[in-house]
Every structure is written in C-alpha cells, then in structure tokens.
Design a protein around this nucleic acid. Structure first.
Lengths: 293, 293
DNA sequence: ACCCGCTATAGAAGGTGTCTATATGATTAA
DNA sequence: TTAATCATATAGACACCTTCTATAGCGGGT
C-alpha cells in the first residue's frame, strides 16, 4: 500500500496546479514535492501530471486518482476539525449517571456551569440506583457515575467527593420537637417518611435503628426526595433526608432538623469511572470542576 | 496537518483491535505501531484507544476519528485499485480522432484487436479533417489522432506510419482503360469523382494536375470513401481513392486501377499526439500496436 | 535574445520511522 | 500464590528516507 503521506502532497499539488505552490503550502521545498510525486507515479506505474513550464496539469489517470484522493482528503480534514472540537469541548457528549437524589441536588449546579461554558457538549443524565449506575458504567452507557460511597468494585476508579449528612426533618406541625434532642426510640412515636428505593441512605438509617434493637418502619415510602420534603412540610410526618439538600428549607424555616441523641453516620459522594478506560475529554473536564475531598 | 501515514496505522489498529496484529498486517513491529498511535494521540491531545491486556479498544474520541478515517481509507484503497486497473488496461478509455477514411480502413483492424485484448477500455472514435483532429487533440478531446502526413505543428508529436498510395479506379464500364497508361490530360476526358471535404489527398491530386497546367474539376464530390467506391463500381466515373483501401475491390476485380504516365506521390499515415502531454496508458498501449515506419 | 518561473536531477545531511531489547501489566493456569 | 503467556510501553540505536541545497534544463513572455 502506498505511503498515504504522498497523497497529501499529490492532492495539494493537483489543487494548486504547481509543485512550487504545493511546496510552499506544505512548508517543504519544491524538489521534495517533485520527489514525492515521482514516488507516486512510480508506485502506480502511471504518469499523474503533465509538466509544463507554468506548472503541472493532471493527466487522465491523475484526474481519476484525484477524484478519489479528494474525497479522502476531505474526510481527513473533517476528522481533524472534529478532533479539535472534541478536544476543545466544542462538541461531543457527557453522559452521567446519578444515583438517587444526587442528580438533582448535587450534580445540577455543576452541570449548569459546565453547560454554560461548553454549550456544544451534549449532556445525558440518567438516574438509577448505585448498582444500576455501576452497570451502566461497565456497559459503556455512561462516562461517569455519581453515587454514595462506599462503592467497592475492583473495576471502578473512585474519586471521593464531599461529605454529606443525613438527618430527620419535620414541618411546623411538629414544632414542639424543635428544641428537643430525641432518642431513636422516641422518634418512632412519630410517622416516619423514607425514600422508597433501595438506597445507601435508607440502608444506613435502618441499620442504625437495628443496631439499637429497634425497627424503623416508615409510614410513607416516597419515590423522590422532592416528595419527602413536601410531605414533611405538609406535616404528614418526619422525613429522612440529606441535610445539604434541604438547606434552603432549613434556612427559610419551612423545615427544621430534629436532633437525635445518637450521631447519624456521614456518608460521602463518590465520582466513579471505569478503571483502565480513558475518559472522554468532556468527562474529564467535568470531573475537574467537581470539588473533591 | 497530521502525517496521513499515521492514519493508515490507526485504521488498521482499530480494525484489528490490536497493535500487534496491525503491526503484522503492516509488516512493521509492534513498537512502531505503538509509536505511531502515540503520535496521533499527542497530535490531537486526545486518547484514541484504551489499552487492555488483550488488545486495544477505541475510545469515544477514537470512534469519532475512526468513522472519518474509515471513509478516507476506503477511498484511498479504491483509488489504488482503480489505478492498478488503469495501468493494466482493465479500465479507462481510448479516444482517437481519425481523419477522412483512415478511421474505417486503417484504424479499424487495430481497434478490433485492441478491444478484444482490453475489453474494459472504452473506445471513442471521432471523425474530422486533419485540422479538426489537431484541434480536438489540443483541446484534450482525444488522446491521439491518425491523419495523413505531412503535419507541421510544433505542439505535435508525430509518429510516421505506413505509406499509402492514392490512385484512380474505375468499374467495368471503363474496362477499355484497363490495360492503358493514361496521361493526366486524357484522364480529364472522363468524369472524375473526388472526396468532397478538404483533405490532404484532394490537395495533393489537384496540385499534381495544376503542376501540369491542368485543372481537375470533379464531376462528383462525395462525402465518404465508401461512396467513392460505390460510384466508381456503378460506372458513374473514375474515383480517386487510396489504393490500400480498395484492395478488396481490386482483387475481386469489381474495380481496376487506371495507370497514369506520371507518378502520384505517396503519402504517409501519421499518428499524432500532443507534445509534452503524457499519453494515457491505453493510448500508449494502442500506439505500440500500430506498425510504424 | 534575454530573463523569469517552473520542474528535474544530483548529492548531502538531518530527521524520523523502525528496529531490538526489555519493562510492565493483566489474565490464565497450575 | 506463582509461573507463564500475551498484550502494550519504553528506551536507545541505527538505517532509511525524506528533505534540503545547488544546479541544470526547459519553455514562455517581454
């Protein structure tokens, strides 16, 4: 197979109709171009150009070759443009998997900033439980996942993000609990609202109760963190939510935190990617914006 | 612009999913392939492959690049096939201009043989007077011309072909002239049939008469050699034709030659091409089959 | 007839692609 | 766990080949 590099010289020579001009365009000398063309001609056993005193003109065979090489050249030029786009985040896509409520409350602000800076990068966001997110990653459906730690999977690369603290919150209906410090046992006298899906946070809190010989049986199981917040506000019960994600409600005092006499373990956000799998430049740029531990 | 040769390595590596296999396919060593890929990656500032223990897999960016490079590669492969076809005369075309009757009586046999041997070469045959043929040649409409000599044109490359001899022929109606040797003057007593168009042969014969103080005024002017032959056969007059082209008629005695007491100058067939303009391989192969002087 | 611009050629030098040898890492089998 | 195998990465040396400089040759235009 002929040295592809020669086609570049051939193409430019044909376009410019002159070895000298092609040489200038390629930042090489005219004899080099002459030599390159000769190599092509000898390779094919055909003359590609007829030389005149004012440049060169394609022969019939040269025209045939040129028609093909032109296409190839265009594709390769396009390719180089496209790669530059990808590198400069003027294209491509970012596919993120977020477990539970992290998508909305944790990721969204970063996504907004990223999108504002790189509007041409298409963003795909998928929800799922932690194991689902891990599966998506392994199947190549997403570039990175945002889940609660811990995640133990030898195939995964884990970057530790911020610490988050879950807590129980209630609305004004339970205002009398506002100043108090409750025991776990006492808390069970009130209707408890939990996230319905199997999540790390739910495992963690039921585990905590079990450790104290108690059973946490929720009055409501809700499918979204937004609903947990709404139900608590309405006074339907006491919701177990991530403190950072109800910061606004706590500040405006539509919700207040219920203090317990035992500490609720913190958990950590983890950014997971596939080990040994290079990140797209979009993914890697995005991760760089997320404050890690 | 990136060295096109690297794309060849990239493409094969992507296709084969392995640096080692690509190396084998390219008859180079694995480190060379590794190096080439690295150059591409550094050139783009992007990772193109993710390396695993059993080969390499395209990254997202690599896939994008591959989709373009694949097209380009296909075009270049096609180009190389096509050029091989052209070289081996399994394609392309042969465009010939023939003046006057040379097309049919002189060229046809050679064209038949050539076409039999290279059936995939398309043959275009155009008629015209010598100046027309020369024009076609200069305009690039034909690859070569077959005309009567002499042709004097600095831009033309002339190959001298066979000698041909014009003569006067008549049919049985003038049988009494068969054994005789006529003078030019005597010949004018009979109806003369000439080719109508301005041709070398007509100039030559009118010139010969003029040199003897005579004026050759034809009874008929016909547009094709076939008609000249037919008219003579029918007895409508005495036709001035090329002896070699009525060989059959002379042999079967449907025509006979009228001897003159002055020699009619011979003329020569010339194969003309454009100087400084490379021949297509079809044209050059064809010329090689024509017996030259 | 001269000059100018273009291409061809020759020979030299530098660069770069390729090589060998070896390291490193991952998977598989024992 | 260790050994073996197969993949890619790395380093350094060498050779080829691209590119260079210098010059010749050719044709056209002034």
């Amino acid at each position: 197979m002929i040295n592809f590099e020669l086609y570049k010289v051939f193409y430019l020579t044909a376009q410019l109709g002159s070895l000298s001009k092609a040489a200038k365009a390629l930042y090489i000398t005219q004899p080099s171009v002459s030599h390159a063309i000769k190599q092509l001609e000898e390779g094919f056993g055909l003359e590609l150009f007829s030389r005149t005193s004012k440049g060169v003109v394609l022969t019939k065979e040269g025209q045939v070759l040129h028609s093909y090489v032109e296409q190839a050249f265009n594709f390769l030029s396009l390719a180089e443009d496209k790669m530059a786009e990808l590198k400069n985040l003027e294209g491509g896509e970012l596919r993120i998997g977020g477990s539970d409520s992290l998508c909305k409350h944790y990721l969204l602000p970063y996504l907004e900033v990223f999108h504002a800076q790189h509007p041409n990068v298409k963003i795909h966001l998928v929800h799922g439980t932690t194991p689902e997110i891990v599966s998506y990653l392994k199947e190549g459906k997403i570039d990175l996942g945002v889940v609660r730690m811990p995640v133990n999977d030898i195939q995964l690369e884990v970057r530790e993000g911020i610490l988050i603290q879950d807590c129980f919150v209630a609305g004004s209906k339970y205002r009398e609990l506002s100043g108090q410090v409750l025991s776990l046992e006492k808390l069970l006298d009130y209707p408890i609202i939990l996230f319905s899906r199997n999540s790390h946070s739910r495992y963690a809190i039921t585990g905590l109760f079990r450790d104290h010989g108690l059973v946490l049986a929720p009055e409501f199981e809700l499918g979204s963190v937004d609903l947990l917040i709404e139900f608590a506000k309405t006074g339907l019960g006491i919701s177990y939510v991530t403190k950072q994600f109800v910061r606004k409600e706590l500040e405006e005092e539509s919700l207040f935190e219920i203090k317990l006499d035992v500490p609720i373990p913190q958990s950590r956000v983890g950014i997971i990617t596939l080990k040994n799998m290079p990140l797209t430049s979009a993914a890697s740029a995005f991760i760089d914006r997320i404050p890690l531990d």
